[in-house]
Design a protein around this nucleic acid. Structure first.
Lengths: 347, 347
DNA sequence: ATTAGCACTCGAGGTGATTGAGTGCTAACA
DNA sequence: TGTTAGCACTCAATCACCTCGAGTGCTAAT
């Protein structure tokens, strides 16, 4: 006999998950039978639960306990069952309050966003700094620093500066480097990384002598510098994981903390997440084995309509997906708006 | 009858502290009487312990437990009793291993140092980014960004760039701003912040029109930018606090984590600590009430012989001060050396 | 198909006894 | 006079044991 997930099973599963998200305690048949909207006795629920367990949606920690939803159940939940929440006015006020202090440039805004996210959700939050790919060049300046070494400064239309050291083939003086800077600026003004035509730029530098390797290194440096973007991640509320009962086990908590601190894998998660408006990764779906047992929800933010970064929340698999999504949605649009307006208005 | 801390009491206290640092468990009279170098019976030790308690060096969690050293005892310990440790070859190898990858500029080095510190000590570590005060100016460049807004880029001899937005009084074109930049660079080349003579610089800008407010804002911007230094703190091993039994209480751990994450007070600690070669702050000596119960040990690092920043370790009051000091001393000199050499050699 | 009823399971939490590491005090001792 | 042996006492930790109750599966009646 083939079991199917009929409507009633779905309803029951949903009630179980809702309860579990709220209480973090295995939920029993009686609890569900008393649930408004479900007019069934606990015995019936038990039968259904047994079916759901067989289908892989529920798990039993031990015989005489209730059931807890599996990763698979949460997947179903976020895909089909979840009713999406909205922020209440109070939360919106709180969120705006965090963001009101937009002094201090992009980094400060990103940091404030991270703090707001972790405080509002009560989970750990992370915000990837804006990625520069697609941003346009405004100015290039090469400054001699000491013997045979110069520093290359790149300014973009986002008001972000980056800099890199470069080795010069001989002791080029400030004047020469300045002329080269002007030529480069003229050539590359308003270019994005992808627009850079190395050969053409090289040609335009011929008059400054036969230093092919140096020029090549210079252009490569500019390109790679713009391309790599900033790998910086702003974290906040790392301690929040200790608030949730699943991490009362100190060993577990320590482990997660070290994974979070390492940042490299978080960077990969956020980088990849920038391709999609929202992502939800549940428990074992995480690539990093250390993150199994956690869920990650992310949202993208934009600048002038283009996605340039993403932010996310790390919590237990039983996190309140609906609420987290709502908060991420709101904060994402706030951040997008702020960043875009920082380009247009005074700052 | 006046009790004094005679030599024997000191020895006993020292043995107690050593033992407590190692085991984190109240230590009893029998343990000490068996301690090599102390040829006394437990009964005698008990008498001495009672005296030490009366003098405020020991505390009893409850009647039938051993004693634990008070903050006052630890203070005495680090000031007078402690024998200073040296790193063993293996630790030196490990430390060098962390620092071998000095690719990627100052931030990367600072980060690596923080990671090494936390891994070697098993406590939480923090490293304050180099403070620029005392660093010399190399280049100033003002670039128009959009209507009425420009970005000011400052390059120092440490190869550090900083940038700030500035509002222009009218739409100054790139050419004009460039001429102003050159003039400023000429005027301020090789200056430290403290050397800047605002009036003289203002005078030299007269020829660029009567924009007193703008010029003033410009110079102020440069000054304050250099002055404030970077408030960035690199943290590592936040999760390590969970390794120590005093933080098995989740509430306590959460509290400390939130204090650490807030960073503002850590910045103040490290900033102030830059004035001294080493500092040790024990328990209640901390200014931040949230940090009482912790100890902080810091060391200064230098660039070309001048102190430009400090690094520290946060742990329980019973931390292994001798070892932590040795590690900080070693890492401090490594960092100083690396930073100084980054100025001189290619990077 | 649903439900009431029942026997069974098992973790959580409470009780009480035991253990052992520790103390203070006193009296004997060198 | 300082040191030590000895003893009575304290108290947290641990363990065995018990009870409680929330939960289950199964079966028979509706």
């Amino acid at each position: 006999m083939k079991m199917r997930l009929d409507n009633r099973k779905m309803q029951i599963l949903r009630a179980i998950i809702d309860d579990y998200i709220l209480n973090a305690v295995p939920v029993g048949s009686r609890t569900i039978s008393k649930h408004p909207g479900i007019g069934l006795s606990s015995a019936t629920i038990r039968n259904e639960m047994a079916d759901l367990e067989e289908l892989g949606y529920l798990e039993q920690p031990h015989l005489s306990a209730g059931r807890i939803p599996s990763d698979k159940a949460f997947r179903l939940y976020v895909d089909d069952l979840m009713s999406n929440a909205d922020l209440n006015p109070e939360e919106i006020r709180a969120a705006n309050n965090y963001l009101s202090m937009k002094r201090g440039g992009i980094e400060a805004v990103v940091r404030q966003t991270a703090i707001a996210l972790s405080d509002l959700t009560d989970y750990t939050s992370m915000v990837l700094s804006p990625q520069l790919r697609g941003i346009r060049l405004r100015h290039i300046q090469i400054v001699p620093l000491r013997e045979l070494t110069a520093i290359v400064i790149i300014v973009t239309d986002a008001g972000i500066t980056k800099n890199a050291f470069i080795r010069t083939p001989y002791n080029m003086d400030a004047e020469l480097l300045d002329r080269i800077s002007r030529r480069l600026t003229a050539q590359l003004y308003d270019c994005r990384v992808v627009d850079i035509d190395t050969n053409k730029v090289m040609e335009s530098l011929y008059e400054f002598g036969n230093n092919v390797d140096f020029f090549k290194a210079l252009i490569n440096g500019i390109e790679s510098n713009l391309e790599e973007g900033s790998k910086h991640i702003e974290l906040s509320g790392a301690g929040n994981i200790l608030s949730h009962p699943e991490y009362n086990d100190v060993e577990r908590a320590k482990h997660i903390l070290s994974v979070i601190e390492e940042q490299e894998s978080l960077y990969r998660v956020l980088r990849d997440a920038t391709k999609m408006e929202f992502t939800i990764t549940i428990g074992a779906e995480n690539e990093n084995p250390g993150m199994r047992g956690c869920s990650i929800v992310t949202a993208t933010y934009h600048m002038k309509g283009k996605p340039i970064g993403s932010m996310g929340v790390i919590g237990p698999t039983r996190m309140n997906y609906a609420k987290v999504l709502a908060i991420l949605r709101y904060m994402g649009s706030c951040l997008s708006e702020t960043l875009t307006s920082m380009l247009e208005e005074d700052s």
